[in-house]
Design a binder for these strands. Structure first.
Lengths: 203, 203
DNA sequence: GTCTATAGAGTGATAGAC
DNA sequence: GTCTATCACTCTATAGAC
């Protein structure tokens, strides 16, 4: 049934533009080119729609997170940042409406928290691996890189929100710049060399 | 008229708990201990309520931003962070619902963008002044501290959102830790000494 | 699978008595 | 200033014909 898929795609587009709470069933039906009655046939209620949308989005996020190799170098980070950015601009409502959806459909949020923890841990591990590779300086004191990983996750998670709030046009290069500025002070001289060779040259 | 003030206080409490869009006029009236008709007498509509609430909140934010001296040292930052945190936990909806309010009452957001720009500039200037004081290292390359200031503003702005999303209990010490972790790598040896003497000793 | 029609529960805002 | 009552409208969800 391609209709179900068309409904989900149209819904995601509308959620992105108007915010989940502001999108009406009528609106989704119109955008899909079907009636509200037909919409109800495919999805019993709005919750069923957002649940399905979250499934699809979760799959894509899974794919982005899976780009993490066992020993990631700085180019891996650069590439993953590009993937993250692509994901963010494809599903802005997933970040913008996160608290509203936690409020109204908390079971969806519960599953999502797994992703969040996994993401922060992954960022933290990147520091670990690149310390071993001699590219990142050792942790200056216990727990410091946990804070940095936390901050990096926040920049990723709220990037689209902040660009809307500030009225900026979101672009990938400033996104990457702010993330890299989080890593830069911890690069060793070998790390700076690798950064310039692998990352800067490409931009 | 104390009633107007009671309405605003009740409204802010409800906005904080349920989110601006989920608060009903009936809800505000009940919480204030008046009827909806009476509520309408004091505020013509919901927009008038949020406008007045934003005015009050803006005043408090103004006060926090005014703690910025012409030559702020690291203790000033520590103190201002405490004030920011206090402000954030007093008006969480101001941060959580920021995009929703921009969507539905854009004129309020327009005024708010002034605060945002001022705040980022203030953070940037703190770096400048403390470079001059020999407490912060010179900028490693053009524009780097702009990125760091941007990241610090994001941590402040989205702190309450992230704590809700992660399911953490928000506390002032982890807030300060993450912000200080943004500054720490740029401290000179003199800066670390001042940091330990003025900031760490107090916590 | 798809439609029209409508029930049913709210929601913001107003009218008018006290 | 404060109240009750109600209008006009929106939105989700369901019933039933095709």
């Amino acid at each position: 049934m391609a209709t179900k898929e068309k409904i989900i795609n149209a819904s995601i587009q509308l959620f992105n533009e108007y915010g989940f709470a502001n999108v009406r069933l009528q609106h989704i039906a119109d955008s899909t080119g079907i009636s509200v009655g037909n919409l109800a046939y495919h999805f019993k209620n709005k919750e069923a729609i957002i649940t399905r949308a979250y499934e699809a989005i979760g799959c894509e996020l899974q794919a982005v997170l899976s780009q993490f190799r066992s020993e990631p170098n700085l180019l891996d980070l650069e590439n993953q940042l590009a993937s993250f950015y692509h994901f963010i601009v494809k599903f802005p409502f997933y970040f913008i409406d996160i608290i509203e959806i936690k409020r109204s459909h908390s079971h969806l949020h519960l599953a999502r928290q797994q992703f969040i923890m996994r993401m922060i841990m992954q960022i933290r591990k990147r520091f670990e691996y690149n310390i071993d590779r001699g590219v990142i300086k050792p942790e200056p004191f216990e727990g410091h890189y946990d804070h940095v990983a936390h901050a990096i996750w926040m920049v990723i998670t709220f990037w689209i929100s902040q660009s809307i709030i500030k009225g900026d046009k979101s672009d990938v290069s400033s996104f990457k710049s702010v993330i890299w500025s989080q890593v830069y002070p911890y690069l060793t001289s070998k790390g700076i060399e690798e950064y310039q060779r692998l990352v800067l040259v490409r931009n």
